[in-house]
Design a protein around this nucleic acid. Structure first.
Lengths: 239, 239
DNA sequence: CGACAAGTTGATGTTACTCAAAAGTGGTGG
DNA sequence: CCACCACTTTTGAGTAACATCAACTTGTCG
């Protein structure tokens, strides 16, 4: 599987994601850096949070990919949203929170604890709030994708979202971005079968929109691509 | 169209929804009651919040139905989530929040302002937090519905959700609950066409699961119905 | 080398969409 | 009270998109 190993360079960028949302002071940056010193590693395919269990406290994804996931009684699975490096998990403001969904590691994931939202200063609270709003935006987008886009549009829209999110933490370049998902995971995210995902990817390749090899994706003809899925960037929220 | 007219009885129940999430003190209840004294009415099909516009402050739906909505460039429309009596709209914790989605009135809607989350005491803050968690749960459920359920399962799951949410504010009885949505609105919520919604409803009627007349729905054979959509109640969050 | 997961392909089936038109419903004004 | 209008619901016939089933191939790692 691709990625999974945290590097010093990599961590520095992750630490800076929250400060993109609000200017953090020196003390907050120190606290975050200290938290990063006690990371936890979860193997690929392991559960990070179990649905229905109490949420102990927030974490930050330092490296690797995870997904919120709902599994049906008959085995059907739906990925509700992706959790990428820099994302927060388990920020709850109520008492005794219960996990509404499970979270599973798609690759090996490295996490570290994050300060509890009740005990943070204004700048970090603002960063948490913006991060939460952005996560909500991705949920809205996932709903619109599944409800009204066809297979090709869904795929394009998801790939554009992933690219933007990775770019925001310095993990995407002009040469492409890592796509740490099997076709089956893509299917579970897009509400399709893996067979149809395979055919959709081939269509995109054939039409010159996508270059996907060895877990690295490169999107081409971006202007035409964006039209294919009515893509709107999330600039109103981010940095 | 059904419903839309607020009644004194009705309002009393709505005011009590937040206190289901956390025990509010007398001062908070007084503040909420005062806010209800200055309601705002929005006609059916009108926009309550415009996507991309600044969010001024939170409101409570006193009566009527509204929906978060995304509209695509080519006219396709997807309802992202429903807003029913007692629900909060526009609770944002970040500075200068921007509406991530539009909100439109499905019926005539009566709203009143709600206290800003930054200026509330602990009990009301807890109620806001629980309300927000519940809203997030409904988004997750909408994603799972659209991604992995077929038309009949989607319809059943949505109807069960609506029934539970209305019951929580005293608007559902054993005789049924108001369904203030046209088949086209149901289609926009379920990611289907209105023609297919029509056929799906007929199938449910024929199979003895549903009685839907004059805007009032009654679900029958609840035990078998719940199995049709792998329904799980939201009890872990609510009251 | 062998085993297992991931990706690919073809044939066929089913669900839901599209297009088009008819029938029902409720509100409005003459 | 009726005629009219807009909107909603219903029905039918044909089609497209996606699922299903069942191989087969490729890649990876011990």
């Amino acid at each position: 599987m691709t990625s999974g190993r945290p590097s010093p360079v990599y961590r520095a960028r992750v630490a800076s994601r929250l400060s993109q949302f609000a200017p953090l002071d020196a003390g907050e940056l120190r606290a975050l850096a200290a938290a990063e010193a006690s990371p936890r590693t979860v193997a690929a395919h392991r559960e990070i949070i179990e649905e229905g269990q109490p949420v102990t406290g927030p974490s930050i994804v330092l490296s690797g990919w995870a997904a919120r996931c709902r599994i049906f009684a008959d085995g059907r699975r739906q990925i509700l949203g992706l959790l990428l490096p820099g994302d927060l998990i388990g920020v709850c403001r109520q008492n005794n929170p219960i996990a509404a969904t499970g979270v599973i590691a798609l690759t090996e994931v490295v996490l570290c604890p994050a300060p509890h939202p009740d005990s943070v200063d204004a700048p970090l609270a603002e960063a948490y709030a913006r991060s939460g709003a952005l996560e909500e935006y991705f949920l809205f987008r996932q709903i619109a994708r599944l409800g009204r886009l066809n297979a090709r549009e869904r795929m394009v829209d998801l790939l554009l979202e992933i690219r933007d999110r990775l770019a925001a933490v310095g993990l995407a370049s002009v040469d492409g971005f890592p796509l740490a998902m099997t076709q089956e995971m893509l299917a579970d995210s897009l509400g399709l079968t893996s067979v149809h995902v395979n055919r959709t990817l081939q269509m995109l390749r054939r039409d010159g929109f996508l270059d996907l090899r060895a877990g690295v994706a490169r999107l081409k003809n971006l202007d035409r691509l964006a039209k294919l899925s009515d893509h709107r960037t999330a600039t109103v929220f981010g940095a």
